[in-house]
Amino acid sequence: MEFWTNIPYKTNQSMKYIVVIVLVVCVYSCKKNNKENEFTKTYVQKEEIQLVNPKIIVNNVIIDTSSSIIASLPLDQTVIRYTTDGNEPTETSEKYTDIISISESGTYTFKAFHPEFKSSGSEQVSFFKKGIDVDIFSLITPLNKQYPGQGESTLVNHKKGTLNFRDGEWIGVTEPFIAIIDFKTKIFLDSVDIGYLVNTDAWIFPIQNVSIAFSENGADFTDIEPQEALEKIKTGSTKLDNIHIPVAKKLKKLKIKISNVTSIPKWHQGKGNPAWLFMDEWIFNAKISN
């Protein structure tokens, strides 16, 4: 009887030891796994986090004598790089180290890099040389009461609008826009730069079409076919842009007609409606002609 009564006792003791061992192993494994998971999670999070875009501060994008760019992103080990050829910056592009002085027209693209995070998106800013002054700017199309800008001078006041289409530097229309520019004296017009805004969320689309005619005597006009292909937006977008139109003619007057998107595309919530067209500065790159 003593033999049989001792078996349960020894078995219980053994089971207790086994349970304790199993618990210890489980706790150790869990702690180890948690540490590994925490390390992996931290590593993955850092690899997946993208840097915010660098902040770009510009005096004026229309250059009279000079302008400047300041780029910043206050995070240790961050390097900002930039290009001037329109391409996306890479880790081998020019390194931004100090304020950049600008005296010529061109496009600057900035991007931030960090050893532990994904590189930022890019920020782009274009500079334009101040064009020749206009003597008389006559609107054939009346201004829209909702977005009149600062009147007809909005397009020739040597100021560029921002991404905020309510900043007062934009003329907004929903129908073709026609203006006649009188330079008073004869000039040789090299080209025209027409600034516009894209903000598809606000139903603002790119320029659909441009028609230009010039007059050498101030009365008779001859058409010029624009050579630049116009942008077609296929997805949502918000940006400042510009159309550069070569002219290379002696003239006294210029007639410009800008057409908007007459029907918003099917992918957009406003499909079928006429789109807004927002324009700011028109720059006339010219010299006085004898």
Score class of each variant (00 low, 15 high):
Glu47Tyr: 00
Val198Asp: 03
Asp85Leu: 00
Asn33Phe: 07
Asn242Gln: 14
Gln50Gly: 07
Glu36Asn: 12
Pro265Ala: 13
Val192Glu: 05
Ile100Cys: 10
Ile62Tyr: 01
Thr162Ile: 15
Val173Gly: 04
Thr174Leu: 05
Lys239His: 08
Lys55His: 06
Thr83Glu: 00
Glu48Tyr: 06
Asp182Ser: 14
Val173Ser: 09
Trp276Asp: 01
Lys16Asn: 09
His244Pro: 04
Phe128Ser: 13
Lys287Arg: 14
Ile56Tyr: 04
Gln45Tyr: 11
Asn285Arg: 10
Thr84Lys: 13
Pro148His: 12
Tyr17His: 06
Pro148Gln: 09
Asn34Glu: 12
Lys287Ala: 07
Ile264Trp: 00
Thr84Leu: 07
Gln150Thr: 14
His268Thr: 13
Tyr28Asn: 03
Tyr82Lys: 12
Ala229Asn: 07
Ile207Glu: 03
Ile180Lys: 08
Lys255Met: 06
Lys95Trp: 02
Val134Asp: 08
Lys252Thr: 11
Arg166His: 10
Cys30Gln: 03
Lys55Pro: 00
Pro148Asn: 11
Ala248Cys: 04
Leu230Ser: 04
Met1Ser: 12
Lys118Ile: 10
Ser263Trp: 01
Pro54Tyr: 03
Ile212Trp: 02
Met1Gln: 11
Trp203Arg: 14
Val247Ala: 02
Phe3Trp: 02
Val22Leu: 10
Gln124Lys: 13
Ser105Lys: 15
Trp282Asn: 05
Val22Asn: 01
Asn260Ser: 14
Glu36Trp: 08
Asn59Arg: 14
Pro74Ile: 11
Ile283Thr: 13
Ile56Cys: 10
Ala213Lys: 09
Ala275Met: 04
Met279Trp: 01
Val24Tyr: 02
Glu281Met: 09
Thr78Glu: 02
Gly151Tyr: 03
Ile56Phe: 07
Thr65Met: 03
Phe137Val: 12
Lys249Trp: 01
Gly195Asp: 08
Ile181Ser: 07
Lys232Ser: 08
Ser138Asn: 11
Lys32Val: 11
Thr42Arg: 11
Ser67Lys: 12
Lys31Gly: 07
Asp280Thr: 12
Ser72Cys: 07
Glu104Gln: 15
Glu94Trp: 05
Asp135Gly: 01
Ser119Trp: 02
His114Cys: 12
Ile100Tyr: 08
Leu189Met: 13
Ser103Trp: 03
Asp241Gly: 13
Asn260Val: 15
Val22His: 02
His158Ser: 14
Thr83Cys: 00
Lys252Met: 09
Ile132Cys: 08
Leu155His: 01
Leu23Pro: 00
Glu36Asp: 11
Gln208Thr: 03
Ile233Cys: 03
Leu139Ala: 06
Lys31Met: 06
Phe117Thr: 10
Phe3Leu: 08
Tyr82Asp: 07
Thr185Cys: 00
Leu23Gln: 06
Thr162Ser: 15
Ala213Pro: 00
Glu231Leu: 13
Tyr196Leu: 07
His244Ser: 12
Ile194Pro: 02
Gln45Leu: 15
Asn144Met: 12
Val192Arg: 12
Pro226Ser: 15
Asn157Met: 05
Asp76Ala: 14
Pro226Met: 09
Glu116Ile: 06
Phe214Tyr: 13
Ile258Arg: 09
Glu47Ala: 04
Thr84Asn: 04
